[in-house]
């Protein structure tokens, strides 16, 4: 196969993966809403199929360019979403045995991939000299792996935790809805009326999203998993920078923002061990870290200019 065919194959497989993810995402959300296990099974299967196509796309891209397939923003994005989906399927679904979160992880990947094809696509080409280094290959793999785990833990799981925690709190604060003749006059009327949906539906829906405490623990585990990987990515990046420019740290925007992300997640890990900061406050720090991650990933590459755009030298 020649370069052009490989490149086309990569694009086709990418699109197939994207559509599979969209379908699986809808399936997962359907499962979250209605709790039909068959739908979940199909969604999960489609997600695995999409993952396989996605892996094919990345590999073909690598052969087309004649190098590792992580050399520009389009390729980073593709790999990032691949790892988020893979991480979700293997860690959350197979590991934690939680079924209901697939829609969110897939939504993140679908968004990332859509942005990648729409705004960031470039044809496969060899690396510019500055990126042609052993260390940057290691660095980028670690950075993408760390990012995808942070996105899963600090983004998806943390948001769900906050949502679920809020719901649990408001339920705990309100009187039980089914008990007729509640004497609590302060209770919101829709709770007294049993709201507009049957009680059974409410409980089954609530039952699908794991309890806040479980989500919290999953978010923590995922972030704790990502943190050393990110640390390693920053170190590998510094080694590369030393090799390329003669200084391991120069506070250029990319370096600065990966440092910021790292410090925020170090803050998160501390918050988990600080009384009064556990739970929601720590979760807010994790979310801030997620925002910082997005800035590191998109804004720095696309808008904030530094000493070295990663072109030419």
């Amino acid at each position: 196969m020649n370069t052009l065919q490989l490149s086309r194959l990569s694009t086709d497989a990418f699109n197939a993966a994207l559509f599979a993810y969209i379908a699986a995402m809808l399936g997962y959300f359907h499962f979250l809403a209605f709790g039909r296990k068959a739908v979940w099974r199909v969604a999960s299967l489609v997600a695995y199929a999409g993952l396989a196509a996605h892996i094919g796309s990345v590999v073909a891209r690598g052969f087309a360019a004649g190098r590792v397939p992580w050399g520009n923003m389009y390729e980073y994005s593709s790999l990032l979403s691949l790892l988020v989906v893979g991480g979700y399927l293997l860690i959350v679904e197979a590991g934690f045995k939680v079924k209901s979160l697939g829609g969110f992880a897939l939504a993140f990947s679908v968004l990332t991939m859509a942005i990648a094809v729409t705004f960031l696509y470039v044809g496969p080409a060899p690396l510019v000299p500055a990126l042609n280094s052993y260390w940057i290959k290691i660095h980028v793999v670690a950075a993408i792996a760390g990012s995808s785990l942070f996105a899963l833990g600090g983004g998806v799981l943390t948001i769900l935790y906050l949502v679920q925690d809020r719901r649990e709190r408001s339920e705990a604060a309100a009187p039980p809805p089914i008990m007729g003749g509640s004497t609590d006059v302060d209770a919101p009327p829709h709770f007294e009326a049993g709201a507009d949906e049957p009680v059974g539906a409410t409980t089954s829906r609530r039952g699908l999203l794991p309890p806040a405490a479980v989500l919290d623990r999953m978010a923590y585990r995922t972030i704790a998993f990502a943190f050393p990987i990110w640390t390693f990515a920053v170190i590998a990046g510094a080694i590369w920078a030393e090799n390329a420019w003669g200084r391991y740290w120069g506070w250029d925007p990319k370096e600065t923002w990966s440092f910021i992300t790292w410090v925020i997640y170090a803050g998160y890990l501390h918050a988990r061990a600080t009384s009064g900061w556990k739970g929601r406050r720590a979760a807010v720090i994790a979310l801030v870290g997620f925002v910082s991650l997005l800035v590191t990933y998109y804004a720095v590459n696309l808008w904030i200019v530094g000493l070295h755009s990663y072109k030419g030298f």
Partner: peptide, 27 residues
């Protein structure tokens, strides 16, 4: 721990300022 936490977050904030305002020697 609270002090360590607050200091870490303050350093992150300072670094944000450093990335938004052009820095001598870089820009």
């Amino acid at each position: 721990m609270r002090t360590a936490l607050v200091l870490l977050l303050l350093i992150a904030l300072a670094a944000v300022a450093g990335s938004l305002v052009p820095q001598a020697g870089v820009s």
